[in-house]
Simulated assay, not measured.
Amino acid sequence: MSELKRLAYSIIDFLREQTKSQAWTSDERESLEVAMQCLENVFKISSQDIHLAVSPPLTEIFSAAITKDLIWNTPSDFTPSAQDVIKAEQLKNEGNNYIKEENYRAAVESYTQAIELDPNSAVYFCNRAAAQSKLNNYTAAIEDCERAIAIDPDYSKAYGRMGLALTSLNKHSEAITYYKKAVELDPENGTFKSNLRVAEQKIGEASSPTGAGLGFDLASLLNNPSFVSMAASLMQNPQLQQLMSGMMSNAISGPAAGVGGLTDMGSLIQAGQQFAQQMQEENPELIEQLRNQIRTRSFSGSNEGHS
């Protein structure tokens, strides 16, 4: 409890110094005074309890933190020992191996230990960002990418992984900005270019009343001669014709047909399954093309290597 009192006294002292600033409005100054009174009442302390003061005061600690660039997103002046550098690199490699094994939590821990030994490495922060994204911790991944960029503004992977994390949060416009920077720094990187195209497509789909929610380009599919020919051929299948005929009969059978005129949803499902199976058997190459088209809409960051 005594430590809490010392902390509370330091905060009150800090706030008291702030109230002396002319930058505050009367309402803001009143709020600060209320905050100080609350702390004094809770911890039963007052400005007379000088024995609780810490040295240096909180104001000086805060000022020193800014002056010495100890804010988290600013490269540190700390210089690790040669032994720490070697150990940090070993931990980084250990984290990379965990990534390959898909043990992402262990990877985060290894990268974190590497950072503690050498906080000036953009690679360690960037690799941890990749592991955090695999755990769906996208906010943490973004913070690590920001740290990596602060350390090395020309590190293309940090921008690329920032784009992936932002895209996962559906922040496609922001992602595009980072992908473009990644491509600018590494114009030969196909992954950056692919992810940039996908993000731009997502923006286009969001603004299109017909494109939203589609996993592939429906217009291109319907204009594909192979697909049209295959569909026409499949519709000659006697089994499919029988199923379709039965559903059409149900559809016009009057009120007893139920919602949408279908009395047997199982028939519809069965028809769809048979149609899909026939498509696969009729033209497996086209089906594979469609699958590849869908895959290109997803991001290729999962195949990205680690430094």
Rank of each mutant, 00 (worst) to 15 (best):
Q90R: 07
M235V: 12
R297N: 15
E60T: 06
Q274I: 14
A8N: 01
M279K: 03
G266D: 11
Y9A: 06
A206Q: 12
Q83R: 11
L70H: 11
G163N: 00
Y159K: 00
E281W: 04
L240W: 04
E30M: 09
M244C: 07
P225G: 15
Y179S: 07
V85P: 00
A251G: 13
G211Q: 02
V259L: 15
L222D: 11
F227I: 03
A175D: 02
F125P: 05
K100Y: 11
E184G: 13
S26T: 00
G211W: 01
A148N: 01
Q132S: 08
T25D: 02
G301M: 06
T210D: 04
S208R: 12
A141I: 02
F192M: 00
E30I: 03
A114S: 14
I12W: 04
T139M: 14
F125L: 08
K202M: 15
S156W: 13
Q273H: 13
L196N: 00
L214A: 07
F275P: 04
D217E: 07
G301S: 06
V198M: 14
A122P: 03
V183W: 12
N189W: 05
E33R: 15
Q132R: 14
L7A: 15
T296C: 04
E28Y: 03
T139A: 15
N97L: 13
S121C: 02
C145K: 05
L164R: 10
L185F: 08
E28T: 02
E17H: 13
F227T: 05
T139G: 15
E89S: 09
F299D: 05
K92P: 00
V183A: 10
N127F: 05
L7F: 10
K134T: 04
Q236A: 13
G95N: 04
L218E: 07
R291A: 13
S220P: 02
D144W: 02
D118P: 03
A150D: 01
S194D: 09
I71W: 12
V42R: 10
Q236W: 07
N250A: 13
N96K: 06
C126P: 02
Y124L: 06
D84L: 06
D69L: 07
A53T: 01
W24A: 01
E143S: 14
I294Q: 08
T177H: 03
L166H: 04
N195E: 11
V34G: 01
D186V: 06
S229I: 08
V42H: 08
A271P: 01
Q270C: 02
N137Q: 14
N224A: 12
F14A: 13
K68I: 03
H51Q: 14
F216W: 11
S220Y: 10
F227M: 07
F216M: 15
L214G: 08
Y111T: 00
R291T: 12
E28W: 08
K68P: 09
A257C: 11
S194T: 04
N103C: 05
T139K: 15
Q90P: 01
E60Q: 10
S307I: 05
G163F: 01
E205T: 00
D186P: 03
N41H: 12
M247Q: 08
L243W: 07
Y179Q: 01
